[in-house]
Design a protein around this nucleic acid. Structure first.
Lengths: 192, 192
DNA sequence: CAATTTCATTAAGGTATCTTAAGAACGCTA
DNA sequence: TAGCGTTCTTAAGATACCTTAATGAAATTG
């Protein structure tokens, strides 16, 4: 179960045997059934989280009860309310399993300990966060400059594996449109 | 001139005298007149960049020639086409001075050298990037869930210092609307 | 100081997306 | 397999935002 996690880290930085062992000791598995919450708005987010199996969503809910999906996460991705984690303030987001999932998570205290013990852990999260930042920048510019149709097409080709695990109305939320509108867009596309 | 940079780093991590000295040696100043480019699409982005003085914009241009501002940067901020920097691929963005500016920049080779010499430099950029990621996530969710009017009001209260340095049509571009539309929104707001 | 460029405003008509409402298809679960 | 919740589709009318074009104000330059 930890192989995916260790492999994910070793893709970017070397780890000693000691470090690998520590990581395995510090990360704890959490199993979630479909629709179960890993984090709810208002709670504190004290763990850094790696998805071992399944599919989850990170979203928030506004005053009117509308849901906005900020991010999906699947096997091999990191997912968190990072603001709440870093500041220790109450979460503003929800993390919920879309399918049955397994998450490996490490408590902030343990991770900070790892950071002090291991230069490479700082480096790993530096690079990982830089990559995430770049991806989010690209999404931002795409949201500004492309039509919903283009963004839909890009999503389903780039993240086919995610698309296959989520209902269409969640993808609509992620893309920032209503499910009704996404449906009409798809209709137009089918007739070429 | 380097005080702001060193101070910026020391806000997040401790630095030894040696490290501070190295940083001062490795970062080189670049002076830009108004409208001058620090980076153009197609060039390679080989430096990590810190704004010492002035105000700049990071933007791209689509096939039709339309400009989309991804980010502004002012004194004390880091600004870059991070994707181009990390991958060594040609830049897709432009960085241009809005006002006369001074930037301190370090070549990737030197920064990588610093990363290997100093655990704290890895940590600094980890934390800095995490904070940037969180800010960008918040912008993303705001773009999804708030009206242009709300986003405009938030920008001018939160970034009053930026707003005072940029023309209104650039803020419109950043907010993802036309200057004409932003103008009508402002008109509505003035009459309460 | 005059000339020129840059920037902001206004308005009319067009397009994209939303809201609301209803019904159809699908997949669980009793 | 019948029933129920979940998801997707369709359509009409409403709203937000864009496009184009024109004007005026402000800032920059010669």
């Amino acid at each position: 179960m930890y192989d995916l996690l260790i492999g994910n880290i070793k893709e970017l930085v070397p780890l000693t045997e000691d470090e690998s062992r520590l990581i395995q000791n510090y990360f704890e598995p959490v199993h979630l059934k479909k629709k179960q919450f890993l984090l709810q708005s208002g709670e504190s987010s004290n763990h850094m989280r790696f998805i071992s199996q399944g599919c989850l969503k990170l979203y928030n809910i506004d005053e009117l009860g509308a849901e906005y999906i900020l991010q999906f996460g699947i096997s091999g991705w990191w997912l968190n309310d990072l603001y709440a984690y870093l500041t220790k303030k109450p979460a503003t987001y929800f993390i919920q399993a879309i399918t049955e999932s397994t998450v490996l998570q490490i408590h902030r205290d343990k991770l900070d300990e790892l950071f002090d013990k291991s230069h490479m852990m700082d480096r790993f999260f530096r690079i990982k966060t830089q990559n995430g930042y770049v991806a989010l920048q690209e999404r931002t510019i795409n949201n500004m400059s492309q039509s919903v149709e283009q963004r839909y097409l890009e999503f389903i080709t780039r993240y086919r594996n995610i698309e296959q695990q989520i209902p269409q109305y969640m993808l609509a939320s992620y893309l920032g449109v209503t499910p009704e509108h996404l449906s009409t867009i798809r209709k137009k596309l089918i007739g070429h």
